[in-house]
Design a protein around this nucleic acid. Structure first.
Lengths: 342, 342
DNA sequence: TTGTATGCGTTATCAC
DNA sequence: GTGATAACGCATACAA
């Protein structure tokens, strides 16, 4: 069978408590004993049972990361790897492991609570604001259990990290304005959807800052996919007074917009400019390449990890929140309209 | 403090072993007792400690999934989420958890072995063939520890799942031939690279099957990125006798090829056809959309999970391997060259 | 059917 | 410095 602390103790002719102390490098153990015991551990190829350690130490050394498989989350999906690596990069060095858990959509609150939290399987929880709900938050806080949300969460007092969608909207819109575009549409996103609201607020803000009126018909809500981007842009461009640029909710919408302009023979850039949220999955690879808003997804994960670790160390910490800044990547789709040329 | 099995026993006026049996739904406990105890557990909001359970049962109910953060694995990256969800979809229902572990590149073998395997933190391991090495394989098999490789692994007797790269190469090439293309290049991939060799073998095989000669200069090795795709295709197309189609190692290479043809004013499809491995991240979103080879990444993960679970149930199982078939997705980039039109 | 005693592999609290 | 011994929370053979 497996070699245990007992076996080492016997072989080294010491008590197992001594072995344990060697394991934890206790200062009250003599140098010689330590070396002797360690040598024996090496010889016998001993590795302490992490389960037993955890039981005794009452810590699982484990962080839970919640995902929702059913959501087919096109949004999370491509970013997930980077986020996860970001988390791991900060918790790994602290010898925490990362456990992925799938939430059951039918009974999200109770199941996760029992399976992961109450059972002591994890020491802290990272989730996102679409999985999180008030019930979970209440249970978690009642238990004093450390957790962090990726994505803003307002209805309760929870710690979260997010990147600044509002600033992002302002950056994209502001960039278009600075390039000389003057009548900018916004395509994609459902009214009421948090992330859309934020982004659109930035779009509005940029208009205000430029003392430009905000025309309601310039915003076309809908699912953020290629089809919606295509149809909406087509309609906009065929209207009496077409916009000269558009801010898109994501790459797919932008691709649809691109297609619409192309179909109508409208040159990009030139008569029409396109800027989009997300640099992923293909904004550098369209024709022309798309000006986009890059999210440091790794940083998002790393920050969530750091915040969680802080809260594990001190569960009484008041909940704070953090906004990361996105980065504007300028490409050809929003190049300056040269004067006198069209 | 937390409520334990002891507290329940006391409250229910039974022995804790009885509670334990209720927990495990033992048939030797009377219906009434079960219900009474369960009611009390509910009232006291009891959840068994998974750590204690695991220690007693000597099973961690945990599967390890290895990643290599440093590899910046552009390859794994986009597929990772699907693979992970695939794994989770089969191990989750069996109440296994998924633990992500980052392998340390400097000391990959020993560290993982101790930290995860010997420590009993996981019951089984899923890794891929770039992380796996003979040393790990030997240690793992010596311990009789269940593991599965995603990606073919030949130098030892290990169980693996992979998708059929060779068949994929033959499918893409065969499709081009069937469409009427007759002189097909292959761009991207380093000689010696496993996955490249497989794919190229399929390419060669399709030629053989069509009784077509295989010209060495039609294969242009190199890193599989846009730049290489662009330069290679440019050169090919500018040669005395240009090919009329190309098979690309991935979307980035294909995008470079697209750009080269476009720059030379060569219509696609028409005078030139492009087919590429991978449907991700953007083959539907180029102009024209790319004919591509779709990998069921979810299935890959799910299969790995199933294989691993089988081996956990029966560690003596002889190691088997499995090839999944990719799927050809035909798009405009390889449309038929209409006779008399160019 | 239920209870008793012991084990799972550590850590922690005391003594010595 | 080192060694018994009791937790840690649950499972299980064996009694009752």
């Amino acid at each position: 069978m497996k070699v245990t602390i007992q076996d080492i103790a016997k072989a080294a002719n010491v008590a197992k408590s001594t072995v344990s102390k060697v394991l934890n490098d206790s200062p009250k153990i003599s140098r010689e004993t330590k070396e002797r015991v360690r040598e024996i551990m090496r010889q016998m190829n001993y590795t302490p049972s992490s389960i037993a350690t955890r039981l005794a130490k009452r810590s699982s050394r484990n962080i839970g990361l919640l995902i929702d498989m059913t959501h087919e989350s096109e949004y999370m999906n491509p970013f997930f790897y980077n986020i996860m690596v970001g988390i791991e990069s900060v918790i790994g060095p602290q010898t925490y492991e990362l456990t992925i858990a799938n939430v059951q959509p039918n009974d999200p609150e109770r199941d996760i609570m029992n399976r992961l939290v109450r059972s002591g399987r994890i020491d802290g929880l990272i989730t996102n604001n679409v999985i999180l709900n008030d019930g979970m938050v209440d249970s978690l806080t009642e238990l004093g259990f450390p957790f962090v949300s990726m994505g803003e969460y307002e209805s309760r007092n929870v710690p979260w990290v997010d990147y600044d969608n509002e600033a992002g909207g302002a950056m994209l819109t502001g960039h278009l304005l600075a390039q000389g575009y003057a009548d900018i549409a916004f395509v994609g996103g459902e009214s009421g959807e948090k992330i859309y609201e934020k982004r659109h607020r930035g779009y509005a803000e940029a208009h205000r800052k430029a003392s430009l009126p905000l025309r309601g018909e310039r915003t076309v809500n809908g699912v953020a996919d290629e089809n919606h981007g295509y149809r909406s842009t087509l309609e906009l461009l065929q209207s009496d007074r077409p916009p000269d640029a558009v801010v898109c909710m994501n790459n797919y919408v932008a691709f649809g917009a691109l297609k619409a302009a192309e179909q109508l023979g409208i040159p990009i850039p030139g008569r029409f400019g396109i800027a989009t949220f997300d640099d992923f999955p293909f904004s550098p690879y369209t024709n022309p390449p798309l000006t986009s808003l890059f999210i440091h997804t790794f940083e998002l994960g790393a920050t969530a990890g750091r915040m969680l670790l802080e809260r594990i160390d001190d569960p009484a910490l008041p909940s704070s929140s953090l906004l990361l800044q996105p980065e504007l990547i300028v490409r050809r789709s929003t190049e300056r309209i040269e004067a006198g040329r069209e």
